[in-house]
Protein backbone atom coordinates (compact mmCIF):
# COMPACT_ATOMS: atom_id res chain seq x y z
CA UNK A 1 0.00 0.00 0.00
CA UNK A 2 1.56 3.27 -1.09
CA UNK A 3 0.80 6.37 0.91
CA UNK A 4 -1.25 8.81 -1.16
CA UNK A 5 0.84 11.85 -1.95
CA UNK A 6 -0.46 15.36 -1.75
CA UNK A 7 0.44 17.13 -4.97
CA UNK A 8 -1.35 20.43 -5.28
CA UNK A 9 -1.11 20.52 -9.08
CA UNK A 10 -2.21 16.97 -9.74
CA UNK A 11 -5.87 16.42 -10.52
CA UNK A 12 -7.99 15.46 -7.54
CA UNK A 13 -9.87 12.88 -9.56
CA UNK A 14 -8.26 11.22 -12.53
CA UNK A 15 -10.13 8.51 -14.35
CA UNK A 16 -8.98 6.87 -17.59
CA UNK A 17 -10.93 4.39 -19.70
CA UNK A 18 -12.93 3.15 -16.70
CA UNK A 19 -14.95 -0.02 -17.31
CA UNK A 20 -17.48 -1.80 -15.16
CA UNK A 21 -20.10 -4.44 -15.97
CA UNK A 22 -22.74 -6.13 -13.88
CA UNK A 23 -23.00 -9.46 -15.58
CA UNK A 24 -24.09 -8.70 -19.14
CA UNK A 25 -25.05 -5.12 -18.36
CA UNK A 26 -22.30 -2.64 -19.19
CA UNK A 27 -22.45 0.23 -16.70
CA UNK A 28 -19.25 2.05 -17.59
CA UNK A 29 -17.78 1.77 -21.06
CA UNK A 30 -14.44 3.59 -21.12
CA UNK A 31 -15.19 6.61 -18.99
CA UNK A 32 -12.66 9.45 -18.70
CA UNK A 33 -12.93 12.13 -16.06
CA UNK A 34 -10.53 14.68 -14.68
CA UNK A 35 -11.24 17.11 -11.88
CA UNK A 36 -8.72 19.75 -10.89
CA UNK A 37 -8.12 20.97 -7.35
CA UNK A 38 -10.58 23.57 -6.10
CA UNK A 39 -13.00 22.98 -8.94
CA UNK A 40 -16.74 22.37 -8.74
CA UNK A 41 -17.37 19.74 -11.35
CA UNK A 42 -20.88 19.09 -12.60
CA UNK A 43 -21.64 15.49 -13.54
CA UNK A 44 -24.72 15.35 -15.71
CA UNK A 45 -26.60 12.49 -17.20
CA UNK A 46 -29.91 10.64 -17.23
CA UNK A 47 -30.84 7.78 -14.94
CA UNK A 48 -28.77 4.70 -15.49
CA UNK A 49 -26.01 6.52 -17.36
CA UNK A 50 -23.41 5.42 -14.81
CA UNK A 51 -23.08 8.44 -12.49
CA UNK A 52 -23.59 6.53 -9.25
CA UNK A 53 -21.45 3.63 -10.44
CA UNK A 54 -18.61 6.05 -11.15
CA UNK A 55 -18.89 7.67 -7.73
CA UNK A 56 -19.08 4.34 -5.95
CA UNK A 57 -15.93 3.21 -7.76
CA UNK A 58 -14.23 6.43 -6.67
CA UNK A 59 -15.21 5.48 -3.11
CA UNK A 60 -13.83 1.95 -3.37
CA UNK A 61 -17.27 0.48 -2.83
CA UNK A 62 -17.18 -1.12 -6.26
CA UNK A 63 -14.22 -2.70 -7.98
CA UNK A 64 -13.71 -1.62 -11.59
CA UNK A 65 -13.10 -4.14 -14.35
CA UNK A 66 -10.73 -2.05 -16.44
CA UNK A 67 -9.00 1.30 -16.79
CA UNK A 68 -7.51 3.40 -14.00
CA UNK A 69 -8.97 5.58 -11.29
CA UNK A 70 -7.00 7.86 -8.97
CA UNK A 71 -8.53 9.93 -6.19
CA UNK A 72 -6.44 12.48 -4.32
CA UNK A 73 -3.37 10.72 -5.71
CA UNK A 74 -4.33 7.32 -4.31
CA UNK A 75 -5.99 4.16 -5.51
CA UNK A 76 -9.66 4.25 -4.45
CA UNK A 77 -9.79 0.48 -3.85
CA UNK A 78 -6.54 -0.21 -1.98
CA UNK A 79 -6.12 3.16 -0.23
CA UNK A 80 -9.80 3.55 0.63
CA UNK A 81 -9.39 4.02 4.36
CA UNK A 82 -6.65 6.67 4.10
CA UNK A 83 -8.43 8.50 1.26
CA UNK A 84 -11.76 8.60 3.05
CA UNK A 85 -10.25 10.77 5.77
CA UNK A 86 -9.85 13.43 3.10
CA UNK A 87 -13.24 13.18 1.40
CA UNK A 88 -16.91 13.16 2.26
CA UNK A 89 -19.80 11.55 0.42
CA UNK A 90 -23.52 12.17 0.15
CA UNK A 91 -25.47 9.35 -1.52
CA UNK A 92 -28.52 10.07 -3.63
CA UNK A 93 -30.68 7.78 -1.55
CA UNK A 94 -29.81 8.37 2.10
CA UNK A 95 -30.72 5.59 4.51
CA UNK A 96 -30.34 6.25 8.22
CA UNK A 97 -30.34 3.85 11.16
CA UNK A 98 -33.96 3.81 12.32
CA UNK A 99 -33.16 3.92 16.02
CA UNK A 100 -30.34 6.47 15.91
CA UNK A 101 -31.16 10.16 15.88
CA UNK A 102 -29.98 12.32 12.99
CA UNK A 103 -27.53 14.02 15.35
CA UNK A 104 -26.08 10.70 16.45
CA UNK A 105 -25.68 9.59 12.82
CA UNK A 106 -23.91 12.85 11.90
CA UNK A 107 -21.54 12.68 14.87
CA UNK A 108 -20.78 9.05 14.23
CA UNK A 109 -20.00 9.55 10.54
CA UNK A 110 -17.84 12.59 11.31
CA UNK A 111 -15.92 10.71 14.01
CA UNK A 112 -15.41 7.69 11.77
CA UNK A 113 -13.79 10.10 9.30
CA UNK A 114 -11.47 11.34 12.01
CA UNK A 115 -12.85 14.64 13.23
CA UNK A 116 -15.91 16.63 14.06
CA UNK A 117 -16.54 20.36 14.22
CA UNK A 118 -19.51 20.69 16.56
CA UNK A 119 -19.99 24.43 16.03
CA UNK A 120 -20.01 24.06 12.26
CA UNK A 121 -22.41 21.15 12.53
CA UNK A 122 -24.85 23.12 14.67
CA UNK A 123 -24.64 26.10 12.33
CA UNK A 124 -25.42 23.90 9.33
CA UNK A 125 -28.34 22.25 11.13
CA UNK A 126 -29.68 25.73 11.76
CA UNK A 127 -29.25 26.82 8.17
CA UNK A 128 -30.85 23.66 6.79
CA UNK A 129 -33.63 23.90 9.35
CA UNK A 130 -32.97 20.38 10.60
CA UNK A 131 -33.91 18.96 13.99
CA UNK A 132 -31.09 16.53 14.90
CA UNK A 133 -33.04 15.01 17.79
CA UNK A 134 -35.41 13.00 15.62
CA UNK A 135 -34.89 9.27 15.10
CA UNK A 136 -33.72 8.20 11.68
CA UNK A 137 -36.98 6.43 10.84
CA UNK A 138 -39.06 9.57 11.38
CA UNK A 139 -37.22 11.75 8.85
CA UNK A 140 -38.66 12.38 5.41
CA UNK A 141 -36.49 11.73 2.36
CA UNK A 142 -35.48 15.37 2.21
CA UNK A 143 -34.54 15.47 5.86
CA UNK A 144 -32.51 12.27 5.61
CA UNK A 145 -30.65 13.94 2.79
CA UNK A 146 -30.05 17.00 4.97
CA UNK A 147 -28.52 14.77 7.65
CA UNK A 148 -26.04 13.37 5.14
CA UNK A 149 -25.37 16.86 3.71
CA UNK A 150 -24.69 18.39 7.11
CA UNK A 151 -22.41 15.50 8.03
CA UNK A 152 -20.45 15.96 4.80
CA UNK A 153 -20.34 19.77 4.75
CA UNK A 154 -19.33 20.01 8.42
CA UNK A 155 -16.24 17.91 7.88
CA UNK A 156 -12.89 19.42 7.01
CA UNK A 157 -12.14 17.51 3.81
CA UNK A 158 -10.50 18.21 0.46
CA UNK A 159 -13.06 16.51 -1.75
CA UNK A 160 -16.86 16.32 -1.63
CA UNK A 161 -18.52 13.56 -3.65
CA UNK A 162 -22.20 14.48 -3.96
CA UNK A 163 -24.51 12.08 -5.79
CA UNK A 164 -27.69 14.00 -6.61
CA UNK A 165 -27.58 15.51 -3.14
CA UNK A 166 -30.64 17.74 -3.36
CA UNK A 167 -33.20 15.50 -5.05
CA UNK A 168 -35.53 15.76 -2.05
CA UNK A 169 -34.93 19.38 -1.03
CA UNK A 170 -37.32 22.28 -1.53
CA UNK A 171 -36.21 25.44 -3.42
CA UNK A 172 -35.40 27.29 -0.19
CA UNK A 173 -33.06 24.54 0.92
CA UNK A 174 -31.68 24.33 -2.60
CA UNK A 175 -30.57 27.95 -2.18
CA UNK A 176 -28.89 27.12 1.13
CA UNK A 177 -27.18 24.20 -0.53
CA UNK A 178 -25.83 26.39 -3.34
CA UNK A 179 -24.53 28.84 -0.78
CA UNK A 180 -22.75 26.04 1.06
CA UNK A 181 -21.13 24.76 -2.14
CA UNK A 182 -19.86 28.28 -2.95
CA UNK A 183 -18.40 28.46 0.55
CA UNK A 184 -16.75 25.09 0.04
CA UNK A 185 -15.19 26.30 -3.19
CA UNK A 186 -14.03 29.49 -1.49
CA UNK A 187 -12.39 27.29 1.15
CA UNK A 188 -10.48 25.51 -1.63
CA UNK A 189 -12.46 22.28 -1.61
CA UNK A 190 -13.05 20.21 -4.70
CA UNK A 191 -16.60 19.14 -5.44
CA UNK A 192 -17.96 16.45 -7.71
CA UNK A 193 -21.65 17.24 -8.08
CA UNK A 194 -23.76 14.72 -9.90
CA UNK A 195 -27.16 16.13 -10.71
CA UNK A 196 -30.32 16.17 -12.72
CA UNK A 197 -31.02 19.73 -11.72
CA UNK A 198 -29.55 21.62 -14.64
CA UNK A 199 -30.09 25.04 -13.12
CA UNK A 200 -28.11 23.91 -10.10
CA UNK A 201 -25.17 22.78 -12.19
CA UNK A 202 -25.33 25.94 -14.28
CA UNK A 203 -25.25 28.02 -11.13
CA UNK A 204 -22.45 26.13 -9.41
CA UNK A 205 -20.19 24.22 -11.76
CA UNK A 206 -16.87 25.47 -13.09
CA UNK A 207 -16.67 22.53 -15.43
CA UNK A 208 -19.15 19.98 -16.61
CA UNK A 209 -19.00 16.41 -17.84
CA UNK A 210 -21.97 14.87 -19.55
CA UNK A 211 -22.21 11.11 -19.22
CA UNK A 212 -24.28 8.86 -21.37
CA UNK A 213 -24.35 5.07 -21.58
CA UNK A 214 -21.26 4.77 -19.44
CA UNK A 215 -18.99 7.22 -21.20
CA UNK A 216 -18.35 10.95 -21.18
CA UNK A 217 -19.81 12.54 -24.30
CA UNK A 218 -18.89 16.12 -23.53
CA UNK A 219 -16.57 17.74 -21.04
CA UNK A 220 -15.41 21.27 -20.44
CA UNK A 221 -16.38 24.58 -18.93
CA UNK A 222 -19.90 25.74 -19.55
CA UNK A 223 -18.45 28.30 -21.90
CA UNK A 224 -16.52 25.72 -23.86
CA UNK A 225 -19.58 23.56 -24.17
CA UNK A 226 -21.61 26.46 -25.39
CA UNK A 227 -18.95 27.20 -27.95
CA UNK A 228 -19.48 23.77 -29.37
CA UNK A 229 -23.18 24.26 -29.61
CA UNK A 230 -25.72 26.43 -31.27
CA UNK A 231 -27.01 29.83 -30.31
CA UNK A 232 -30.72 30.44 -30.76
CA UNK A 233 -31.45 33.70 -32.61
CA UNK A 234 -34.78 35.44 -33.20
CA UNK A 235 -34.88 38.45 -35.53
CA UNK A 236 -37.44 40.85 -36.92
CA UNK A 237 -36.19 42.40 -40.17
CA UNK A 238 -37.31 44.99 -42.74
CA UNK A 239 -36.17 42.85 -45.66
CA UNK A 240 -36.91 39.27 -46.64
CA UNK A 241 -34.82 36.67 -44.87
CA UNK A 242 -34.99 34.00 -47.53
CA UNK A 243 -31.21 33.90 -47.91
CA UNK A 244 -30.60 32.94 -44.28
CA UNK A 245 -31.40 29.26 -44.67
CA UNK A 246 -28.74 28.92 -47.35
CA UNK A 247 -25.92 30.20 -45.09
CA UNK A 248 -23.53 27.63 -43.67
CA UNK A 249 -24.13 26.65 -40.03
CA UNK A 250 -27.75 27.81 -39.90
CA UNK A 251 -30.33 25.25 -38.76
CA UNK A 252 -34.00 24.88 -38.13
CA UNK A 253 -35.28 28.14 -39.59
CA UNK A 254 -38.92 28.83 -38.78
CA UNK A 255 -41.10 31.90 -39.26
CA UNK A 256 -43.72 32.95 -36.80
CA UNK A 257 -45.68 36.20 -36.94
CA UNK A 258 -43.05 37.94 -39.03
CA UNK A 259 -40.24 36.89 -36.72
CA UNK A 260 -37.66 34.39 -37.82
CA UNK A 261 -36.12 32.00 -35.35
CA UNK A 262 -33.18 29.72 -36.10
CA UNK A 263 -30.09 28.19 -34.58
CA UNK A 264 -26.56 28.98 -35.53
CA UNK A 265 -23.39 26.99 -34.94
CA UNK A 266 -20.87 28.75 -32.72
CA UNK A 267 -18.32 28.80 -35.55
CA UNK A 268 -20.65 30.60 -37.96
CA UNK A 269 -21.93 33.48 -35.84
CA UNK A 270 -19.59 35.95 -37.60
CA UNK A 271 -20.95 35.05 -41.06
CA UNK A 272 -24.50 35.36 -39.81
CA UNK A 273 -23.85 38.84 -38.41
CA UNK A 274 -22.50 40.05 -41.77
CA UNK A 275 -25.63 38.76 -43.52
CA UNK A 276 -28.00 40.28 -40.93
CA UNK A 277 -26.33 43.69 -41.24
CA UNK A 278 -27.92 44.15 -44.68
CA UNK A 279 -31.42 43.07 -43.63
CA UNK A 280 -32.54 46.15 -41.61
CA UNK A 281 -32.79 44.31 -38.33
CA UNK A 282 -35.49 45.90 -36.16
CA UNK A 283 -35.27 43.55 -33.18
CA UNK A 284 -32.95 40.73 -32.27
CA UNK A 285 -32.69 38.33 -29.39
CA UNK A 286 -30.01 35.70 -29.06
CA UNK A 287 -29.54 33.36 -26.18
CA UNK A 288 -26.91 30.76 -25.47
CA UNK A 289 -28.04 27.15 -25.29
CA UNK A 290 -29.44 26.13 -21.92
CA UNK A 291 -28.24 22.88 -20.46
CA UNK A 292 -31.63 21.48 -21.33
CA UNK A 293 -30.80 22.05 -24.94
CA UNK A 294 -27.34 20.59 -24.48
CA UNK A 295 -28.84 17.49 -22.95
CA UNK A 296 -31.60 17.24 -25.52
CA UNK A 297 -29.03 17.36 -28.26
CA UNK A 298 -27.07 14.55 -26.66
CA UNK A 299 -30.00 12.49 -25.54
CA UNK A 300 -32.59 13.52 -28.08
CA UNK A 301 -32.38 10.18 -29.82
CA UNK A 302 -32.31 8.37 -26.52
CA UNK A 303 -35.38 9.94 -24.96
CA UNK A 304 -37.63 6.88 -25.16
CA UNK A 305 -35.00 4.87 -23.32
CA UNK A 306 -34.64 7.53 -20.67
CA UNK A 307 -38.38 7.77 -20.22
CA UNK A 308 -38.52 4.01 -19.84
CA UNK A 309 -35.82 4.16 -17.21
CA UNK A 310 -37.68 6.73 -15.18
CA UNK A 311 -40.89 4.72 -15.31
CA UNK A 312 -39.15 1.74 -13.74
Amino acid sequence: MTAPVRDLDAPVVEVRDLRKSYGDVVALDGLDLEIGRGEVHGFLGPNGAGKSTTIRILLGLLRHDGGTARVLGGDPWTDAVALHRRLAYVPGDVELWPNLTGGEAMDLLARLRGGTDAARRDELCERFDLDPRKKGRTYSKGNRQKVALVAALASDVELLLLDEPTAGLDPLMEAVFQECIREARAAGRTVLLSSHVLAQVEALADRISIIRDGRIVESGSLQELRHLTRTTVTVLTGRPTDGLAALPGIHDVRTEGGQVTFEVDGAHVAGLMRELAGLEVQAITAHPPTLEQLLLRHYGDGLPAAAEASVR
Binding site: T101, R111, L112, D131
Partner: peptide, 26 residues
Protein backbone atom coordinates in the same frame (compact mmCIF):
# COMPACT_ATOMS: atom_id res chain seq x y z
CA UNK B 1 -45.50 7.17 19.15
CA UNK B 2 -41.90 8.05 18.28
CA UNK B 3 -40.03 10.21 20.74
CA UNK B 4 -37.28 12.79 20.30
CA UNK B 5 -33.80 11.53 21.06
CA UNK B 6 -30.40 12.97 21.72
CA UNK B 7 -29.07 15.64 19.37
CA UNK B 8 -25.52 14.41 19.97
CA UNK B 9 -23.97 11.00 19.85
CA UNK B 10 -22.64 9.58 23.10
CA UNK B 11 -18.89 10.05 23.31
CA UNK B 12 -18.26 6.31 23.10
CA UNK B 13 -20.02 6.07 19.74
CA UNK B 14 -16.91 6.67 17.67
CA UNK B 15 -15.78 3.37 16.13
CA UNK B 16 -17.27 0.72 13.87
CA UNK B 17 -17.25 -1.62 16.88
CA UNK B 18 -19.25 0.88 18.93
CA UNK B 19 -21.71 1.31 16.06
CA UNK B 20 -22.16 -2.46 15.70
CA UNK B 21 -22.85 -2.72 19.43
CA UNK B 22 -25.25 0.23 19.36
CA UNK B 23 -27.22 -1.37 16.51
CA UNK B 24 -27.39 -4.83 18.09
CA UNK B 25 -27.79 -3.77 21.72
CA UNK B 26 -31.60 -3.97 21.81
Amino acid sequence: PPRLGSARAASWLRSPLALAWRLQRT
